[in-house]
Design a protein around this nucleic acid. Structure first.
Lengths: 137, 137
DNA sequence: ACAATCCCTCTAGTAACTATAGAGTCAAGG
DNA sequence: CCTTGACTCTATAGTTACTAGAGGGATTGT
């Protein structure tokens, strides 16, 4: 079975442009072409595309996926590396979550400054946003 | 007191390039210039820069900040809009967190597939990433 | 024969910066 | 007076993972 790009994209749950983009980035091998120069994908191509999409649904960066694609050829030898890669990604997600949690706190505090229609002359939210007690660097 | 861009950036806790970028995006008014064509910032400029940075530290998009900068000129009249803007942002942060939480679950499940040195011939993580039970669209 | 739908390549746009190149300005030291 | 170093200027390109568009060819159905 061979698929044209539209069919491949649909089966992988992404857009046509995305498939071409992965090819351009070297994540998908160049498929054969039809007479009319259309890309023709095999089942293996499709499997690899799905692999990529699955990784992306876990928000892994393409660079990590590129590495995984290489490592998975000899999974036994590279088990440790594969785990490390996943662990690093989990760490990234964890710290992103911690950051977002802080953000949420700050925003809720900010929002509580103005609970109803203001009774002062200036907006407490604007006032709070104007004060600066923090230095990033 | 007038500051050159380096001093302004330091006081606002950001990079020099970032300050110029805000000016280019129309978030900071163009400052006066010295004889040698250096930007010269007043206290008001600095306050506005800090306002922007504070909003950014809450991860608000520049477009929202642009709106806030306008709204804050008449806070009393625009109190409701200001609140709505903050509320929307809180919603965004909330749904981002929900997404990340799901992600974390999936990643931990994935990771648990390979707890120690594998005893099978193929990596369970790679196997799981290859299976596809989901369609995004 | 013709229209609709698919596909092709190439280029530019997104958000919010960051980094670089190549040049000018300014204060202090020798 | 000259030079060195730190600072600044403009303009341009790079980052991530796509998305959107132009301008054209291929295929399919009526």
């Amino acid at each position: 079975m061979q698929f044209r790009i539209g069919e491949a994209a649909k089966r992988a749950g992404c857009k046509v442009e995305t498939v071409r983009y992965y090819e351009q980035m070297g994540l998908l091998p160049q498929p054969s072409r039809s007479e009319g120069n259309y890309r023709l994908y095999s089942e293996e191509h499709l499997a690899q595309l799905r692999f990529i999409r699955h990784c992306r649904s876990l928000d892994m960066p393409l660079e990590d996926i590129r590495n995984l694609l290489t490592l998975r050829e000899r999974p036994r030898e590279h088990c440790a590396e594969i785990n490390a890669l996943v662990d690093e990604h989990i760490d990234r997600v964890n710290s992103q979550m911690a950051l977002l949690e802080q953000l949420r706190e700050s925003l809720l505090t900010l929002r509580s400054q103005c609970a109803g229609p203001g009774y002062t002359d200036s907006c407490e939210i604007v006032r709070e946003l104007s004060t600066c007690e923090c230095h990033d660097s």
